[in-house]
Amino acid sequence: MFDTIIISIVILLLLIGLFFTVAGTIGFVRFPDFYSRMHATGKCDTLGEGLMLLALIIYMIGYEGIFKGDLVHALFISIKIILLILFILLANPTSTHAIAKAAHDVGLQPWKKTDETQWMNDMETDEVTNGGETG
């Protein structure tokens, strides 16, 4: 019974984390602008991967630790994964901020919403100018 509850929580958290990761990837490919792509990836990746690692911690302590009776070993591994989660929560927003600040300093303009034909022209010229001036 307890076994089934633990496994269910682990599967639920893994699926939610997978959903956020896939949504962040779709946003990263489909969004029109550099800043909005960063908006998609910076948050979705942090949350999704935090949730997946949390699910693995619960699996490690609840299943391997309690049912197989190897609690010390399970605690060592889950301490490593907790350090990994803390590092991701610290480092991922920091690197997102650093990329955004570097792009702002170089002078990349944010995308503004205009009418359709103007948007098409902007997309075409955007690739040329961005590739030229920042690459």
Partner: peptide
Amino acid sequence: GPGIFNRIIAVNVIGTK
């Protein structure tokens, strides 16, 4: 992706995955 910054984000995202 156009420009160097999209590539830097792609490296960051793939590394985190």
